[in-house]
């Protein structure tokens, strides 16, 4: 007998609500998810089958609908809006490509511009924006730190420097993948 909350359909449903409600403050989102969990637990006995689970989830409404109701209830919180593929692609490319060029200074400018584009976008919530900007600017700290580590033996040659730039590009790349997925989820065809 498994609790209804561990049912795969319920888990997918709740994480979808969580993603759709990303613009809400942490408190509000936690409240909403707690209410939905309580509801699901009280209407679905442990060990319910897929059909019964799906029926209850349909009765609750789509994750998007519920998140929209919660967002509409919060004055000042604006729902996420999809942005064009091109805008997202340019931002993410700037994020990733800036990393190897920090040394010549161009990278710093591109990274700052990428950070501004992330901040002004309508496609990501505050939490994702902060994460994206930290990833974009991380080479500032990571590159010298890794170079210092690799060159600790006193042999800071070309390979060590290339290595440092490659390693410093990992965080921006990871951040870009996350932001790219978030932006893609908002586009209508993904609904």
């Amino acid at each position: 007998m498994s609790n209804a909350l561990t049912h795969p359909l319920v888990r997918a449903y709740l994480s979808s609500v969580e993603a759709e409600a990303a613009v809400l403050s942490d408190d509000r989102r936690r409240d909403l998810l707690a209410d939905l969990r309580e509801h699901i637990e009280s209407v679905l006995p442990p060990g319910s089958g897929d059909a019964a689970v799906q029926e209850e989830l349909d009765r609750l409404g789509t994750p998007r609908e519920i998140a929209a109701a919660a967002i509409a209830d919060e004055p000042g919180v604006r729902p996420l809006q999809p942005e064009s593929r091109v805008r997202t692609a340019v931002t993410l490319a700037m994020m990733v490509l800036s990393a190897p060029f920090w040394v010549v200074g161009v990278g710093v400018v591109v990274a700052v511009l990428a950070a501004v584009r992330i901040w002004r976008s309508t496609a990501w919530a505050g939490q994702d924006k902060r994460l994206g900007i930290i990833c974009t600017l991380s080479p500032l700290v990571v590159t010298p730190a890794v170079a210092a580590l690799l060159g600790a033996g006193g042999r800071l040659g070309a390979y060590e420097i290339y290595g440092a730039f490659l390693i410093a590009a990992v965080a921006p790349l990871a951040g870009a993948v996350r932001l790219g997925r978030g932006a893609a989820r908002l586009r209508p065809q993904a609904a």
Partner: peptide, 13 residues
């Protein structure tokens, strides 16, 4: 009646 889940934000408020 709207979808049931949309009432929880109201109850929370």
């Amino acid at each position: 009646a709207t979808s049931q889940g949309t009432l929880y934000p109201l109850l929370s408020r």
